[in-house]
Design a binder for these strands. Structure first.
Lengths: 192, 192
DNA sequence: TCCATTACAGACCGACTGTCGGTCTAGAAA
DNA sequence: TTTCTAGACCGACAGTCGGTCTGTAATGGA
């Protein structure tokens, strides 16, 4: 049970790579199963043997992309002196990573509408959101019962900027604004 | 040339109302033109006479929803004492409005993927984003060349919370966190 | 050797979007 | 009054797409 398993895994990987490219280029709706079939020189039966449907294929693609991104951000944050520094470096790394169309289209634009917001959030919690929440907690700048909401706001804000930068190209300016944004947020709760 | 024009406008409105409800309930992909046809007791030809296609119909729906939301938020902000107060009241009103499924599904989830991010942004600029940017400028808490980016981050953050509240129901808690978030942001740029 | 399991093939189905030739009628023009 | 035009509306149809189903080949454990 080795040759068979390996062949199957290889096919799945091939399909995954092709689907990732197509989804990124043409979006979920603009990509037909037919296209994937054609490029992978596979039959319908084979594809549906490995993936339950178009949605499931998309979800597998999303999962793979998120995993890769997670590793790259972890790498970028490695040398950070403290929690706040890690948060800043992570944010910067994320914005730069998200210049890739693969991430923009698949993770930020199509995923919520294809999988539904709940499912998307669940996937994010295991990756980008989870990391950010951890980093934010480590800074101790936010009281515990606001942590969840803060992490949501922060991630959404940074995602938006990633998309913005991808269109306008004003990377430095946006990064400075995000730095400023983070500085204000981390300044600690003012007296009310 | 009056009866004819009126009849046409009435048909467009009828279709728009039905499409809005269906898009909100089943999402863009889950709503078929066939459904709209059936509920509006109209023929394919007639519908395609008034709207260029499914995308165009969706865009018309989005525009109508955004316009309504714009009015309601303007109403909510009316009595605000100063710019900061207006921003806070606007944010709160927006979060509460976004408890409607119509707004969540159509404006926040489906629009970016159906129309594409650029088109979506363009529509938003004429409505929610435009208002928020104006309000933020009026507070003078953000330097001019960061204004655009800040407005993006802020809107994205608030939108995210609107979706979060819609799922978890913890309105008060989320609103307090947003209040806190705004307070920190508006506290002014710290010395660097 | 036998057989269960897995990989793969491709015909087929129903549903969907968008097109196209055409009808009907209000109301302007003659 | 008669004629003509533009716009509202109709429904058959083509083409595409996602997904199903039956069947075949080959691997590897019993």
């Amino acid at each position: 049970m080795n040759l068979k398993a390996e062949r199957g895994a290889a096919t799945r990987d091939r399909v995954l790579a092709i689907a990732t490219r197509l989804f990124a280029e043409h979006g979920y709706d603009g990509t037909s199963i037919e296209m994937v079939l054609h490029e992978s020189a596979l039959s319908r039966g084979a594809l549906y043997h490995h993936y339950a449907g178009k949605d499931a294929l998309f979800e597998a693609v999303l999962e793979a992309v998120e995993t890769r991104v997670g590793h790259e951000i972890a790498e970028a944050v490695k040398g950070a002196a403290d929690a706040e520094e890690a948060l800043r470096q992570g944010a910067r790394a994320w914005i730069r990573l998200a210049s890739e169309q693969v991430i923009q289209r698949i993770v930020l634009i199509d995923a919520p509408s294809v999988l539904g917001w709940e499912k998307w959030r669940e996937v994010e919690a295991r990756h980008a959101f989870g990391m950010l929440k951890g980093a934010l907690r480590a800074t101790k700048a936010v009281q515990d019962d606001h942590l969840e909401v803060y992490a949501h706001m922060l991630l959404a804000a940074i995602n938006e900027i990633a998309l913005l930068v991808a269109r306008t190209g004003k990377t430095e300016k946006a990064e400075r604004a995000v730095e400023d944004f983070l500085t204000r947020l981390l300044a600690g709760a003012p007296p009310r």
